[in-house]
């Protein structure tokens, strides 16, 4: 059974000067108990999509259901059973950790005690600071508190809007481990992120760009769909190298990737031809090695087409 079914969902923001199609005919399904990632750069429409699914925003077209309830008609039912953690920390800064948690438990008509098991793993880490005001917590602790508050009513579906943006690498890793444990408890999780490397941690992902979903599937299937050869190229003059790669007829696309440049090869050209071309262009020391495409490569290619 699907936990979230999105069908042709659209949202348009109209101002006097222009209309912005924030979300355009987006469709996807999320299965129960799945950890589903929506990956896309800033402005891709991730937040608008989440706000529609959490009944904060009315869609302009299409439909969607969350746990079988329609997001327009049955919004009251949805509010009972989803948890939402917005990208920006939005708990009461002048209430303490404990008071925030109690407050959100109460307005969902439950108590912290009744659902303690679900937040225990996360909450024990901030429990020593439970008398501290939320505004005085560090970034990582704020995030844990926000997650605890979003979980306290035992939601069926959890929406996390860019939870790892602006969080350090260690905390990000920790956060994803927490998500995995939550998944084991049977909660369906939708998470949006601008970080491509986090895609591999999801069961399935949807790549989103300019309001449209470019591709959706398991990270492996998306990578499998990528059928060009990718060569990692490095030389002394990296900037010149990128320009030469872009200028060459044999590459479909090329972009910098860590300490290498990635060159997406056209099918009819080979590694040798590239080597010859680059040496000719004044890169005698050029180092070329074949590499496995990852989500980022797929994303770059999908954006091109």
């Amino acid at each position: 059974m699907t936990a979230v079914a999105v069908n042709n969902l659209s949202k348009v923001y109209a101002t006097k000067k222009e209309t912005i199609d924030a979300v355009q005919h987006v469709s996807f399904d999320v299965a129960r108990g799945e950890l589903f990632g929506i990956i896309g750069p800033d402005g891709a429409g991730k937040t608008s999509l989440f706000r529609m699914l959490t009944t904060l925003l009315l869609p302009d077209g299409g439909s969607a259901t969350v746990d079988g309830s329609d997001i327009v008609k049955d919004y009251e039912a949805i509010r009972q059973k989803v948890g939402y953690m917005p990208g920006r920390f939005s708990l009461y800064q002048d209430l303490t950790v404990e008071e925030n948690l109690n407050f959100f438990a109460t307005i969902f008509n439950t108590t912290v005690g009744a659902n303690y098991d679900i937040i225990k793993d996360i909450y024990v880490q901030i429990e020593p600071f439970k008398k501290r005001r939320a505004g005085k917590l560090s970034g990582g602790m704020k995030q844990k508190l926000a997650l605890s508050c979003a979980l306290i009513h035992r939601p069926v579906v959890l929406f996390l809007d860019e939870p790892t943006t602006g969080v350090d690498a260690v905390s990000r890793k920790e956060f994803w481990e927490m998500l995995k444990r939550l998944k084991q408890q049977g909660i369906t999780i939708l998470v949006s992120t601008p970080y491509m490397d986090e895609a591999a941690l999801c069961d399935r992902v949807a790549l989103m760009q300019k309001g449209k979903i470019l591709s959706a599937g398991t990270p492996a299937s998306i990578i499998n769909a990528f059928n060009n050869t990718i060569l990692a190229v490095k030389s002394e003059k990296m900037f010149q190298l990128l320009r030469d790669l872009k200028a060459w007829q044999g590459t479909e696309d090329s972009y910098s990737f860590g300490e290498y440049h990635h060159a997406v090869m056209k099918k009819e050209f080979s590694e040798e031809q590239l080597q010859n071309y680059l040496v000719e262009k004044g890169h005698p020391d050029v180092e070329i090695k074949p590499t496995q495409p990852n989500i980022e490569d797929c994303f770059m290619q999908l954006m091109q087409s």
Binding site: T55, S90, N109, C149
Partner: peptide
């Protein structure tokens, strides 16, 4: 302004 109203709005309050 601080966004807490959204957090309240997604609840059944």
């Amino acid at each position: 302004e601080i966004g807490t109203i959204e957090q309240i709005n997604v609840t059944p309050v």
